[in-house]
Design a protein around this nucleic acid. Structure first.
Lengths: 151, 151
DNA sequence: TATTGTTATACTCTATAACTATA
DNA sequence: TATAGTTATAGAGTATAACAATA
């Protein structure tokens, strides 16, 4: 056992707990974790397919299917670039944005019972420590919008 | 914006980061996140199918497939209960245990770069806060073994 | 030639419904 | 009747390989 093993285990355990919450809430709107992140990502960006795939750590062919299914539901749409005619960019629709905001609210509410276990003084402390671990420097793009960039 | 929104966002962002690490390491051994958790769970238990499904928050039919594929790889095995002949219990094989331990080590190593960003004094503090949030009371069963039980 | 994106294919993960065997 | 587990089916998510269009 190395000295930080307990910390690593706590991080993994907490993360699985968080994913269970997100999975449950997403399922309530027929959204997988990946679709949840896709919507979060698009709230403040209009990336091309290749950029999206890189953000999410997925193959471009996987992105085609993901965007296809989201587009079929009217949550996102595809646009053709003006300059490079090979490029397709993706943006969120008003319906998609509405859903993304509703889901973000639900997630925050669902997490409250967990964070309520902390003493009020501990909450900003935990925020600071988590930001140190997972990095605010990469940029925070909403509750489901963080990228996978490595440290 | 409620006061704890920043904390909730940090929890979600960090969790996605952790899942990306686990997904990458699992993929290196042809293990999905779910198979990773299954192996972790079985390190110190020999549950029946229904218990496993409850632990993982999955349908029993999903468990059948999951265990089937893990069994085909020689990582787990099924046993028939002595008392109730309907019951099937699942246990990890020596090969499965070896793999689970190797993966756990890899995960801890992969997380070190993240936790190394913290001042040494902050590390036990973060452990304590995460334990408060996600609960040690439910029991910790290894790095991929925590259950989905709600607060 | 290289890049962007889609399509074809195959496999895992997942749930629902129907089924078998046991209680 | 009720419970434990499997199977059949269907759909989403994923990657690899082959492809078309554009650069």
């Amino acid at each position: 056992m190395r000295p930080d093993d307990a910390l690593h285990d706590a991080l993994v355990r907490t993360s699985f707990r968080m994913m269970a919450v997100l999975t449950r809430i997403g399922a309530g709107h027929d959204l997988s974790l990946t679709q949840l992140r896709l919507l979060g990502l698009l709230r403040d960006r209009r990336p091309r397919m290749t950029e999206l795939a890189a953000f999410l750590g997925l193959d471009k062919s996987t992105m085609s299917g993901l965007v296809e299914r989201a587009e079929r539901r009217g949550l996102v749409a595809r646009g053709k670039s003006s300059e490079d005619r090979r490029v397709v960019d993706v943006f969120i629709t008003p319906e998609g944005r509405e859903l993304a905001e509703r889901v973000q609210e639900e997630i925050r509410s669902a997490l409250a019972p967990y964070t309520d276990r902390l003493a009020p003084d501990d909450r900003p402390a935990l925020t600071r420590l988590l930001d140190a671990v997972s990095g605010t420097t990469t940029g925070n793009h909403g509750i489901t919008g963080s990228s996978d960039a490595s440290p």
